[in-house]
Amino acid sequence: MDWSDEGFVLGSRPHGEGAAVVQLLTAEHGRHAGLLHGATSRSKRGLTEPGTRVQATWRARLAEHLGTYGLEVERSYAAGLMDDPLRLAGLSAVCSMAELALPEREPHRALFEGLSALLDAMAVDDEADVWPGIYVRWELGLLTELGFGLDLNSCAATGRNDMLAYVSPRSGRAVSLSAGEAYRDKLLTLPGFLVGQGRADSQGVRDGLRLTGYFLQQHVFGPLDRPLPAARERLGAQLGEGGSLGRIHDGQ
């Protein structure tokens, strides 16, 4: 059996002398692995870099087999991001999150489209970086797709949707400023840009990463008995206090 689909390379592992097992996030087939013959050859080496957008053809005798990939590059994002430590950390983080958190062969079209938008935003060499905000939204989408979506529509205590400022770490529901004020030390901060208030400034991105990181650890990586991927931790550190956040302009 065989299929053709578009996808993004999430990572690859060498297999045997010249082949590699490549993990793709495809539009219709979700995270899907396959063997790429000659992956270490000069012509194919660049193909397996994380973030490369490819047109993939997968073939196997039976559906449950690993199968082999035929890949053709549509766009290579990694090369343009290599000089920028923050963007490169973002690329590594999103690819390792998708590879480690998503179940295999389960279609997640929204995450595929989200990854596409994120990489397009990363590729734009703009002073007012918007990609960290998109990254936080992508992780929120990841939680939703995995069945642990946060309810940010209305306050868990009052039922109203004005001035939502916190998220309950227990229920994953939003809490308004007035209702949550007394418990602010126990609640997670909800950045305004996630509920349509303002743009993703540096503090908002930090709060957003803390928010998604908490729930991803709690519901996705905790049960697997592993920490968040090291690349995600590095991105958090770089975007955090004292990190190299100079390129995200506050208040824009």
């Binding site: 990694a78 430590p85 490169l88 590594s92 690349a231 590095r234 190299s244």
Partner: peptide, 15 residues
């Protein structure tokens, strides 16, 4: 190396 892993390592060392 001029790979994502190689350059991530280089940026980490620079820091």
């Amino acid at each position: 190396n001029a790979t994502v892993a190689g350059q991530t390592t280089a940026h980490y060392i620079t820091e």
